[in-house]
Design a protein around this nucleic acid. Structure first.
Lengths: 154, 154
DNA sequence: TTTTCCATAGAATATTTTTCTGTTTGATGA
DNA sequence: TCATCAAACAGAAAAATATTCTATGGAAAA
């Protein structure tokens, strides 16, 4: 982070929002020629500031537009139960994100399914099979206001 | 969705995980030549299944590795207060995601900051300035178990 | 001032993207 | 069964881009 100058941060911010610019276009945006821009990006990739490039898909069009946050308490708090839970959760495709959290619950899941019916099915047939789970509490998303995929400030 | 065949879904899945493959590489993966792969991807982009391509950045290296879910209750539930809240939240860069939710709270924020001290600063100086907020409750992320950026099943 | 080092510009080369043309395949109807 | 049509495909050609290379310039250190 200390080795990043303002141009690096500009490039990161641009690519974080849209990685489809050509080197020439990026060069124009940061007032450089293509070669240093190319070298900077390769350096940012090599040093791990840029982890990967991905396509963002439209969840609605892919029948995954129903979003639920599912809070989970484990049955017990020992290491084995925790490991079992993680192993099981990683296999469930509807679970898009999973966090180990502080507070009343142990884990927070972000779940993408088609609709409420599919969510009911998910809770019964998928979460229901995870033996390490003690209890769950679902919070339904009525609207998504903002999403910037990981890093806000640059 | 009905117009998508298995090859389209394969391509979406691959690109959702890594959009840096060349057309030739993708063609080999789905057992086609580059041209139909190229045409399929352009069609998926044009029809909105692929929304955009972005770089995923390393939050830790960019001093944004401290993750908090912040539950928010508004002061009142009228349209103006809600609009004010949304307008204010969109301006705060630390807020990486924002959802209007069911349950005890009105909104759920995902917040990225450097550390606990930065979070305290965020709560006092950023959220503190948002007049529409009635109360907040913070849930701290101890570990991120899984993240697949939006769509699980394909 | 001189030297050294690093980032840069600009040209070259290699790959890739994109377009185009002709062919195959599969469905439809006579 | 055969002819016809439309859609998807393979392969080659063209255009654009990514990548490498060399030389230049400017800033920091001697």
């Amino acid at each position: 982070m200390e080795n990043l100058d303002n141009t690096d941060l500009q490039l990161l911010k641009i690519l974080h929002e849209n990685s489809n610019f050509t080197t020439k276009e990026l060069a124009a945006k940061v007032n450089l020629s293509p070669s240093p821009v190319f070298e900077r990006i390769k350096r940012l990739e090599k040093n791990g500031y840029i982890e990967k490039y991905i396509a963002i898909l439209n969840a609605e069009k892919l029948n995954q537009g129903f979003l639920v946050f599912c809070n989970i308490k484990l049955k017990k708090h020992d290491k084995n139960i925790g490991n079992d839970f993680v192993a099981d959760i990683l296999k469930i495709e509807e679970v898009v994100e999973c966090f180990n959290i502080s507070g009343d619950f142990d884990f927070l899941l972000k779940v993408h399914v088609k609709d409420m019916k599919a969510y009911q099915d998910f809770v019964f047939n998928k979460l229901g099979e995870v033996k390490s789970i003690g209890s769950t509490q679902s919070t339904f998303v009525m609207a998504q206001i903002k999403n910037s995929y990981g890093v806000g400030i640059l």
